[in-house]
Each structure stands twice: as C-alpha cells, then as structure tokens.
C-alpha cells in the first residue's frame, strides 16, 4: 500500500520533484560549470570576466564584483551545501536511529538513560557551541563539519524512531518473531527496520534541514568549511562586499532562494510522509 499511496500526496510529489531537480543540478555541477565558464577556467578565479556584468546568454545571472560568473558560483554553492547537509543528515540519522532503536526496543533502564541524554542534547543551544568549536578548531574540513553538525541534530531522529519502535514492539509480528527464536539483532533488522523506512525518511529530511540551517548560521558569522563555496558562504561574501548598498539584490536573492527551495522541498516531503503514514495527522497540515 505504502509507496503508491505516497504518490497520492500532493505535498510529497511536489517536494520530491523539487528536491530531485536540485539534486540533479548539484550532481551535474562539473558539466554545468564547464559549459558555463569553459573547462579550463577555475570558476572561483577572480578577474576572469568583467565585474557586475548584467545577465546575458553567456552569464545567465551576470557576474559579481570579482568578475566571476554568478550562476557558476551558485551551482557550486548548491553542490557543497547539499553535500554537507546530506552527509551531516545521514550521520545524524544513523546515530539517532541507533539510539532510538536501542532505547525503544530494550526499554527499561536503558531507555531511561538514553532518553535523558537525548533530552539533554535537545535543549542545548547548538549555534553558540558550534561557533565556539568552529572558532578554535584550526581547520574545519567537510567531514569534520558534518560530524560537528550531526553532534547536535541526532536527537530529532532518536525521538522519532524511539516512538515508532515503542509502538511496534507490542505488535504481533514482533511477538511471532520472538517465539520463532530470532535473536534481538535479527528482530530489529528483519522485523522492525523495514517498517521504519518512512520514519527514517522523516528523520533524514529533518536532520538535513537542521544541518544546512546550522551550517548557514556558522557561515554568516564567517566560520565555515575552509576554502569551500557553499550557498551560505556565497551570501555572506556577497553581503560583506556591499551588494545591498550597490542594489545587487539578485546576487543575494538567488542563493537565498535556493536555500529556501531546499528547505521547502524537504519539508513538503516530510508533510507528505506524515500524511501518508500517520493518519492522525491527516488534515492537520491543511490539504
């Protein structure tokens, strides 16, 4: 029933299509960049083109203050924003799911300890801590950034998964599995996991949003992954050279819009998943 009924959700379809389109652009980044500025040119090299060129066939979004093709910068930014977000999201979902599974499946004292821990991390104001870390760590690489971001966003997944496992544990197929002497690991992987997929989707989308948002916050302060162009870095850079007072609103608006589209796509997917798999929520998001 599940996958086909998911396709009935308008929210899911729109969100998924949008995300697929963004992901496609990110994946095709090398090809697109090569076609825009030529394969030999370093797209980040300053002074390749004239400055503040208006949009044209050659430069769909014009050029920036340093004479770089802006559309190219945007595509590169999209690629790295998505990459870091996805990496952090996957990591955080992995950690959160593991903790949620253990917590929900074993219950009792294990659950109590893990839940307290989860709740604690949940109330930590992540941005100041991330900023502190990013300030004093000499070089932040992409994997390290993903780890830092995931360190604070896993509780979301842990909660979602725990609640689901808790309700699933009592169901008959788990009892059946217990009776047919499967061990705990087998039960978790073969009986419980398959039913968690939609919720893994919700967790992943939520974590990716959280990660991109936190990363964006760091970049606005001027702390990001070293030497990496992301949408947040692009926005920060553009503001700092005064695009606002120069009236270059497209140069700020375009990366901002892309960020919003990423969030919107992921959120619509989440609304769709919840509508399909959590009937109690049906109609609460305003279909």
């Amino acid at each position: 029933m599940t996958l086909t009924s998911l396709l009935h959700s308008r929210y899911f379809l729109i969100g998924f299509t949008l995300l697929a389109a963004l992901a496609l652009i990110a994946i095709l980044e090398p090809v697109l960049v090569a076609s825009l500025v030529g394969a030999e040119t370093n797209p980040l090299q300053q002074g390749t083109f004239g400055i503040f060129e208006p949009p044209s066939a050659e430069h769909p979004l014009g050029t920036d203050r340093f004479g770089r093709d802006y559309a190219t910068l945007l595509i590169i930014g999209l690629r790295f924003s998505l990459t870091i977000g996805l990496l952090a999201g996957l990591l955080s979902t992995l950690v959160g799911t593991t903790i949620g599974l253990i917590s929900g499946y074993f219950g009792g004292r294990v659950d109590a300890v893990l839940r307290t821990f989860t709740d604690m991390v949940l109330v930590i104001p992540e941005l100041p801590l991330l900023i502190a870390m990013a300030t004093f760590i000499p070089t932040v690489t992409i994997p390290l950034m993903a780890v830092l971001l995931a360190a604070f966003s896993w509780p979301f997944s842990a909660r979602t998964i725990r609640a689901q496992v808790l309700s699933m544990r009592e169901r008959s197929y788990v009892d059946l599995a217990r009776a047919s002497d499967m061990n705990n690991v087998q039960i978790v992987f073969f009986e419980i996991m398959p039913n968690l997929f939609p919720f893994l989707g919700v967790s992943l989308a939520g974590s990716v949003i959280g990660a991109i948002l936190a990363q964006f916050g760091l970049e606005i302060i001027g702390l990001g992954v070293a030497n990496t162009m992301t949408l947040g870095v692009l926005i920060n850079l553009t503001i700092s050279w005064g695009a606002m007072s120069l009236g270059q609103w497209v140069l700020i608006g375009a990366p901002a819009l892309l960020l919003i589209l990423i969030f919107l796509a992921l959120n619509l997917i989440n609304i769709g998943l919840e509508q399909t798999f959590n009937p109690r929520l049906k109609g609460t998001t305003g279909t």
Binding site: I252, A256, I260
Partner: peptide, 21 residues
C-alpha cells in the same frame, strides 16, 4: 495555512535580508 507553510521555511536571517534590502 498554505502561506504559513511556505513562510515557515524561510530562515529568519533571509527574511531579515529581504526586509533590510
């Protein structure tokens, strides 16, 4: 409701940018 769903996806910072501009 639909407008709210869309608006709630805008990071505050970006909303501020738009207003500022």
């Amino acid at each position: 409701t639909t407008i709210s769903i869309a608006l709630s996806q805008v990071p505050q910072y970006i909303a501020a940018l738009a207003l500022l501009y």
